[in-house]
Write a protein that binds this DNA or RNA. Structure first.
Lengths: 352, 352
DNA sequence: GTGAAAGCGCTAACAT
DNA sequence: ATGTTAGCGCTTTCAC
């Protein structure tokens, strides 16, 4: 790999000092440099196809114009789409992104943070996973600028960009209530992450008027659940005295796998079971009946995250905490189907 | 952001030179360093939570332990899954990945390459898009190690890891032939990219025994096609004297959109139309009838790409060109359905 | 056994 | 209007 030209190569060819070349190429001291010299330097730089060595620049400036991005699981479309938006926005601000997926594991998260810090990133955008609060606090103690995305810690004073998850769940559940459902089940993940707690809270809150024990309609699957786990969840909610007539899935992955199961068992949607899922995925439209989805404003989340990080890198030490509003995209999976009126009446009689 | 400790901080605290600290921490000159000094240095380093500044190291060594990854379109699951695999493998080799998506645009590709070179990446892994041959040749002229993935240029002597696309198409088409189909349509992209040409070639070759003019059953959509474009494609293949009874989609995106259309028009699969699509996507399983897919060995492709790049970075100047074998995952969309025997017989009579 | 010094490529304070 | 010099943090040659 032949060496790239340096300032010195240009300086030598032009018979001037590297300082001068640096000034010319950076447009500094414009007024004091003889135009013809400047022109010659620029001409030589162009001829040699010069471009500055960012590594040297970084070392000198203690600034890398690089941000680290840690996503929770890159194989999730949420993460990859977010990665794309962030890369795009960072690029506009003159920043390069180095990234990694922690695959929902705290140790991998730790490792990624270390690598990124060794590379002296100017800041971090992080989708944290379960159990990484200590690492986040470490970042804070080191005064490393960072912004949490999607997930955050309620007791931690830090910048974040997230969804109003309570409202999202409340809205989704209410939608099902509005369409006559009274026994509504929810399948969610067994996690301490606050955004998931909020989703649960929204569900319970919406249901509290019609269901005195909503907790019994919640099934929690472990991260990395199997098809069998999903099948078991359905059994719990459907094979009981008062089976649910509607189902709320709190993540896109849960939505995907629930629909696979529904399809395999030929459960009619929405006639036998109404469905609302979290997260937009164009893939969900492939399902026999398009699925009602709670949509997160990804573009907005990504843009804001970069914007806030840039301010933080720029020295703004205040925190910005954003809980953006979701959208409910109503599709066939939650409306028009059989609300099984007889059954519902019976149910209402018992639960109210 | 408080400064991280440097070699000098440690040296001062230990009352030794930075040289010595460097030796100790890098495990060099083991035999010549007094054990107790070494121990003390290590102890202080640990106490200060020292970690070396990779930027300075990179500058000194002219080596960044960073590779640049350019994918064609990060929103495509193929790209994001590949990105994940590559990040994983690179990490194992001690490399960090910086990445960007060129969104199938040559100008953005060019820009990414420039950014990556300015950051002095040690090598590149590239999923090229249409029209970037000149940039690839530039890399070559600069002796920058790189490996092409998925797509490559037949007349360019370079390393690449790709699929045997001819074989993939041949296999997929033959599968449909084996199941009695004689009028088979193909929807593909209008592109010069060689891997797509190969997919077309495989299709035509497989069909040549039973169809004297396979070219008439091929519809080419432009990159970024609309839903209407897809509808038009179906019209061309289905609304004619001898409609196709089977359809072959040459990319996952085409597969997705074709299935959306099929679903919206309530076309019965495989009774009215058999379907084979390129690329594995778990999402395709959501479709009312799971779709027969041509599967690429992603893990293998990504691992090999990193391996080859590492060798190339290590000084190996020979080229490795890999065309891996695809797998055909047969699902309900291509078998058991109506082969419409009467119709087929008529067809065979005419075309043979 | 250990340290001084040079240098990677760049920028900027300080000459001249 | 331009050049000298120092230094970012590290590695490594060479000297003691």
């Amino acid at each position: 790999m032949e060496k790239k030209p340096s300032l010195r190569s240009i300086a030598q060819q032009a018979g001037v000092s590297t300082t001068l070349v640096s000034y010319v190429l950076n447009g500094k001291m414009q007024n004091r440099i003889k135009p013809e010299v400047a022109a010659r330097v620029r001409e030589i730089a162009k001829r040699l196809n010069y471009s500055p060595n960012q590594i040297a620049r970084s070392l000198k400036a203690s600034k890398t114009f690089t941000i680290g991005l840690v996503v929770a699981d890159i194989s999730n479309p949420f993460s990859s789409e977010m990665a794309r938006i962030i890369e795009d926005q960072a690029d506009k601000a003159g920043y390069t992104v180095i990234y990694g997926s922690c695959d929902e594991r705290a140790e991998k998260f730790q490792k990624l943070i270390e690598v990124f810090l060794d590379r002296r990133v100017d800041g971090l955008i992080v989708i944290p996973c379960d159990g990484v609060l200590p690492q986040i606090q470490y970042l804070q103690s080191r005064d490393i600028p960072f912004v949490l995305v999607d997930r955050y810690f309620p007791d931690l004073a830090s910048s974040y960009v997230a969804l109003d998850n309570y409202q999202a769940s409340f809205m989704g559940t209410n939608h099902l209530l509005d369409h006559g459902h009274r026994r509504i089940g929810m399948i969610t993940l067994d996690t301490q992450l606050y955004h998931m707690q909020e989703r649960t809270r929204g569900f319970i809150s919406a249901l509290s008027d019609v269901d005195s024990s909503p907790e019994q309609s919640i099934v929690r699957l472990r991260e990395g659940f199997s098809a069998q786990d999903m099948a078991d969840a359905f059994d719990i909610l459907l094979k009981r005295d008062l089976p649910v007539s509607a189902l709320y899935l709190t993540t896109n992955k849960l939505g995907m796998h629930a629909l696979k199961y529904i399809h395999s068992r030929k459960i009619q949607v929405p006639q036998e079971l109404a469905v609302v899922s979290f997260d937009e995925t164009e893939f969900l439209d492939l399902f026999a009946t398009p699925v009602t989805q709670i949509i997160q404003p990804l573009q907005e989340m990504g843009s804001q995250a970069v914007r806030i990080l840039m301010e933080s890198i720029g020295g703004n030490s205040s925190f910005t905490q954003l809980n953006l509003q979701p959208l409910l995209a109503v599709r066939g999976s939650s409306i028009g189907g059989g609300k099984r009126p007889d059954f519902e009446r019976e149910l209402v009689g018992r639960t109210l």
